[in-house]
């Protein structure tokens, strides 16, 4: 059972979406997306019709990404548990809704143009996280990401 957050967990999701024809049907995605969970940073690379790479990164690397997703650890847990429970994010837990509910935003970027990739590829990124409903996730102890 992969642990969130970890490269192993993101790779499990990557394998799921890359073998899912429905993900391909959403169209091309070309974006480098960061995921920041506490002190952990992960870089997801999407190219053409698939997620091509997952790696652990540093805070400095965020500057080179199109945008990154950041929220408190308990909110990450809530989002993923909601997805698991419903098979996909419900109306209150979509990436866009979370983004609008956070004063500093969920999708962040140092670049006013590249941040719009969050909107351009929104459904694909959403489906990436929705795929986590298909695996059993073990959550890391909060102290491990604090």
């Amino acid at each position: 059972m992969p642990t969130f957050p970890s490269v192993e967990w993101f790779n499990a999701i990557k394998d799921l979406v890359n073998s899912d024809p429905a993900f391909r049907q959403l169209g091309t995605v070309d974006s480098v997306v960061g995921v920041k969970v506490g002190n952990k940073v992960y870089e997801l690379t999407f190219e053409a019709f698939e997620c091509t790479n997952v790696r652990e990164a540093t805070e400095n690397a965020l500057r080179d990404m199109d945008f990154w997703l950041e929220q408190p650890y308990d909110k990450w847990q809530e989002m993923l548990q909601n997805i698991k429970r419903n098979g996909a994010a419900d109306l209150q837990h979509t990436l866009n809704t979370i983004d609008l509910n956070m004063p500093d935003g969920f999708a962040r970027s140092h670049d006013g143009y590249r941040r719009d990739a969050f909107y351009r590829f929104n459904q694909s990124i959403q489906d990436f996280f929705n795929a986590s409903a298909k695996i059993d996730t073990q959550f890391a102890e909060p102290a491990a990401v604090a």
Partner: peptide, 24 residues
Amino acid sequence: QFGEMYAHNAAEKFIFTRAMQDKA
């Protein structure tokens, strides 16, 4: 964006998400 957030059903959610992608 706000239409998606306050959508009253899955159909509206879908519409606003896809329209958002086009508009971006």
